[in-house]
Design a protein around this nucleic acid. Structure first.
Lengths: 203, 203
DNA sequence: GCGAAGCTAGCACAGCTGTGATAGGAGTTG
DNA sequence: CAACTCCTATCACAGCTGTGCTAGCTTCGC
């Protein structure tokens, strides 16, 4: 019975994650990952010809997981928007990409590490930018939904507000990751709520 | 005539910066830095006993430069606040910590690389957090100045707004660093201006 | 039984790493 | 002149790195 390649690759990506979390991207050597996964370097290199390939796969895995979560959130959201509170709907959607529970915190940490690694590796940089487009789109959706409902304050432009909301979102993520005592879920949600509510005010 | 130690250490920090910019923190090996600075590893290690010491010094150098710049900005600002436009004064002050010219862009890149490295090295993490306190304080100053002038919108809390402004600032920095076509100075200033102006609106 | 995949483990190579230790060349001071 | 400090360069050690290569193991299809 042959081995499930996808499963193996996912397991190896998992091993990469664990090492990245403990010791950072540079420590994710082929030998280290092999040890972490309980395999030999030869086996690892049977599934990933080169180290870069392995690392990039592990990085893309972050995007995949986040995408699945957001996808589910979007469907759930369409109901909520219809039910009346578009602000709360926006907050709930944006919270999906913030590291507010253990799993997403792990993802965000790994993601951040790879982002920094992207300063060196152009392909990693590309993956980051691709994912960023998605998040940016999410922010734009929130703003233009408000606009569509006639709730966007007078004198506000969708472009500027989307950009601002996006920056706020990434800033919040950064602070949850780096602060000595990270803001709690409620605090983050409050900031988000306040921001979206401000978008309804006339300038 | 003996050598100026401070100057030498600064030169070595400079060499570290150049390597970090080109190839990332992990590439800043003792040998590499020595080569970059035109010295031998022995010489480097005469001024920095260990690699960590060298790296941490290079990281602190970012903070030193930024602090000098902001310090100057603060004095310049007190005049401006008095002259009447506290919003513009706030924008000008906050722009000091954003990577809006070549020098500050360089600093920010290096800083970001070290921040990520801080996930591994606790001392680097500490340096980041210390500097973050400064930036956070800057944001708080902007908000509470508005409050002091009676310009803060009704129903707004200084704490929440400072936190939000800080997140926005860090998010903007991140985007300037990572975006494929970074927002221009004007766009960033516009976002900042819009944000500060919003703070004067009643909720 | 036999061969052919699919997968694993291990070795070898060349090159890098941080750091300890030591020898030598300047320049100043006695 | 000698002794001294300051600074530099170099060698050595042990250990890590990515990757090429090969031998052996299972498990399948015939």
């Amino acid at each position: 019975m042959p081995i499930d390649h996808d499963q193996r690759r996912a397991d190896l990506a998992d091993a990469v994650w664990r090492i990245v979390l403990r010791e950072g991207v540079p420590a994710a050597s082929v030998r280290g990952v092999a040890r972490e996964a309980g395999l030999s370097t030869g086996s690892v290199r049977y599934f990933f010809a080169t180290q870069d390939e392995l690392l990039r796969f592990a990085m893309r895995e972050v995007v995949s997981r986040a995408e699945r979560r957001v996808q589910a959130g979007v469907e759930w959201r369409t109901r909520e928007v219809g039910e009346g509170d578009p602000i709360a709907a926006g907050v709930d959607l944006l919270k999906q990409v913030l590291p507010l529970d253990a799993d997403r915190l792990t993802e965000a940490r790994v993601w951040f590490a790879f982002t920094a690694h992207g300063t060196t590796d152009p392909e990693a940089r590309g993956i980051r930018q691709e994912a960023d487009e998605g998040v940016k789109g999410l922010c734009r959706t929130c703003v233009s939904d408000l606009d569509g409902l006639g709730l966007l304050g007078a004198g506000r432009e969708v472009d500027v507000e989307a950009e601002r909301l996006w920056a706020l979102l990434d800033g919040l993520t950064l602070h949850v990751l780096l602060a000595p005592e990270p803001p709690g879920t409620d605090a983050v949600a409050a900031v988000l709520d306040r921001h979206l509510r401000d978008l309804t005010l006339n300038t």
